Amino acid sequence: MSRLSVPNLETVAGPSGQIYAQIKKAIGSVPNTFAAIAAYGPAALKAVLAADAVLAAGSLTKRDQEVIKLVISEVAGCDYCVAAHNYLAKLAGVKPEAVKQVRDGQPTGDAKRDALVGFVRKLAQTSGTVSDEDFVAIKTAGYTDAQLVEISLAFATTVFTNVFNRINDTEIDFPAVA
């Protein structure tokens, strides 16, 4: 059971109700994390959704976006986000065995994806300026300067939801991760 209560999504009005209706219309249901964030910070959820719209219009593939979010969530230990992005990565076309390899920090056999996973994992596990070697490696793998901005945006929004879900102990409403 999540720590923060969420109002009845069908009857709530105002900014939260508007966001719930938009999400339900777009994807059919409101994930528990979005319901809780919107209940207490509708502007915060709008910011996350706007960032996701920027990412959707960018040049990173949906697969890359979900891999980034999965790696960050795994490193942060956010069980909710690991379950969500494990599921969403598969929906985006990442093979189940590759999803597990990404979570475990093991090579997937896709050099570009593996470079992205290694780069994001290092960002999540360290502090300070990225080394010249790591910068050259991600660029050599084929990621553009614009994609480095997108990687940063995906990283930032995922950290927000990871932290929120760790505080809230959000009840997982995605398939369990084996």
Rank of each mutant, 00 (worst) to 15 (best):
Q65K: 11
A26F: 08
A51S: 11
V149Y: 03
T33N: 11
V94G: 02
P175D: 01
F119K: 10
L55E: 01
G118C: 08
G142D: 05
K46L: 10
V75A: 03
T108E: 04
K69S: 09
L4N: 03
V54K: 07
Y87P: 05
F160A: 05
V67L: 08
Q147D: 03
I167K: 03
V71P: 08
I167F: 13
P7G: 00
P15I: 00
T144R: 14
C78I: 08
V159G: 00
V75G: 00
A56R: 11
A124H: 15
L148E: 00
S16R: 12
K90H: 03
Y80R: 07
D79Q: 06
P107F: 13
Q106D: 04
T170S: 00
V48C: 06
K24R: 15
V94Y: 03
E97I: 15
D169V: 12
T33L: 11
E74V: 15
Y143V: 13
I72D: 01
E66N: 12
V48R: 06
D114T: 04
V102L: 02
V99M: 06
K112M: 11
F164L: 10
V6Q: 01
Q22S: 12
K24W: 07
G128L: 12
A84I: 12
V177S: 00
R113W: 08
T170R: 05
L70N: 04
Q125E: 05
K100Y: 07
G77N: 01
G105Y: 04
V117S: 01
R113Y: 08
V117Y: 00
A115K: 12
Q101R: 12
L116V: 13
T170W: 05
Q125V: 10
S73W: 07
S5D: 09
C81S: 11
G128T: 10
V117C: 04
A115T: 07
L70C: 12
V130Y: 02
K25T: 12
K24I: 14
R113G: 02
V82W: 02
G142N: 11
P15E: 00
L9P: 04
F160W: 14
A84F: 10
M1C: 09
A38M: 13
V117H: 01
P7K: 03
G105L: 04
L9Y: 01
Q101Y: 09
N165L: 05
T108Y: 09
A146S: 02
G77K: 06
P31L: 12
R103G: 00
R3D: 01
F164W: 09
A38Q: 09
G109H: 11
K100P: 01
K46W: 06
D104L: 14
D104N: 13
P15Y: 01
R121Q: 11
T140Y: 12
V117I: 04
A38T: 08
